[in-house]
Design a protein around this nucleic acid. Structure first.
Lengths: 220, 220
DNA sequence: CTTCCAAAATCTACGTCGTAGGTTTTCGCT
DNA sequence: AGCGAAAACCTACGACGTAGATTTTGGAAG
């Protein structure tokens, strides 16, 4: 049976969708419009495609969000397997790469912090870190705790810092000086909220804690 | 004009809704069914009320989520204004209370970590903490950094630990030993994932870092 | 070159969601 | 007794996620 060829659309194998292109477009869409407005239908429109076409490559919205997480995580540069540096440099370098990714995709980042990461990219980064720490002779328990410790802090800190909408650093919401006098006094010192200096300071404090813990315990 | 009194429902001021009861019921509903299944309509059914009635007390879904955050945050015991203890005890005590709340409402907790907290309950807890630290003579910058530092870690850590569904401690997803040999070796040491002992260990490490930083800097 | 088929894309349809706007009921005051 | 406002309900709309059936297509087999 012939249908009227009015508005004949391209069908079949012509649109050239694949998991990678879908995820990349989805990330761009969330970067632009935010997670709240994101949806399968809007993504389909952005791709110039029927909503259901997406389901041939990704099995549902949850899987779509996973694919987006994986995509942004893969951006964290894996330039070198720098096995030559100390554990602190490895940790710092990993943390900075992670932070930069978060600032590049502030509206996607909540997905990463919320969803458990089991992709190879994530695991190999952790493997590099723990290997470096072990090589440096840190006690096993300290090494074993490090990933959860470090990424716990990174996720929580970045989530807080990026939660103010605009493009990166949010603003602190102006404290009532009479109700909270001490906090009000400290306000000036929080001027660099979201700044690289602040990040380095706090990251340094976490690493200090780990080093201190390692020194307290016995050798491996 | 008289309408047929078939299925006459109670209307007017009889249902006894208020912000508090709505929030409490919403929290219970999310505790039971999860955030994904939560919605205004389901909440209304739970309350035995028309969906739109809720909007007379809370102006939209976003505000509803805020109200839930506030409700669970208020649970964190404020039993005593214990101004008599040192800053480390105050920090530890606050952190433990926060953790207990998170374990009581693991499916609500992501809301807290994601949304900026500006409610009086949150601010007064922070005020207590920074006041204690300042009294102990810690440098201002260290004190100013402490809230973001501590709650950054707490939010990120708890988010990770609670993301496995059941009731509290999730399971780690079984590492591929050949691809990630060092991590595989350390697996046994991560047995207590989500345990109180693990939490205390990591919290202690963060506080160590803060203490170390304070010692490095000059006096206030 | 033709035929056929599985993969890829579309179309249709259903139930659910958040909420705008309008209507009715009820309670506390006069 | 009766009025006004607050609180509840009803209706309706557009958008969402996705199940299931249908159509198109590119490439492999003959």
């Amino acid at each position: 049976m012939e249908r009227p060829d009015v508005a004949r659309r391209t069908q079949g194998r012509s649109a050239g969708l694949d998991r990678e292109r879908i995820a990349a477009t989805a990330v761009a869409l969330v970067d632009r419009d935010g997670l709240e407005r994101f949806g399968v239908r809007r993504l389909a429109e952005e791709l110039g495609v029927d909503p259901m076409s997406i389901y041939h490559h990704i099995k549902g919205k949850a899987a779509l969000l996973d694919a987006m997480s994986e995509a942004v995580l893969a951006e964290v540069a894996v330039t070198a397997d720098d096995t030559s540096h100390g554990w602190e440099e490895t940790a710092r370098w990993t943390a900075h790469g992670y932070r930069e990714m978060a600032y590049r995709h502030p509206r996607v980042f909540p997905l990463l912090a919320t969803r458990a990461q089991t992709s190879p990219v994530a695991l190999s980064a952790l493997e590099r870190l723990v290997t470096a720490m072990r090589k440096a002779g840190l006690p096993d328990q300290v090494v074993a705790d490090a990933p959860l410790m470090l990424f716990g802090f990174l996720n929580g800190y970045l989530l807080a810092v990026l939660s103010g909408e605009p493009d990166g650093a949010g603003d602190l919401p102006a404290i009532d000086a009479t109700a909270y006098p001490t906090m009000a006094t400290l306000m000036p010192l929080q001027a660099g909220f979201g700044s690289l200096a602040e990040f380095d300071r706090m990251l340094g404090t976490v690493l200090d804690g780990i080093r201190h813990r390692a020194a307290q315990s016995g050798s491996p």
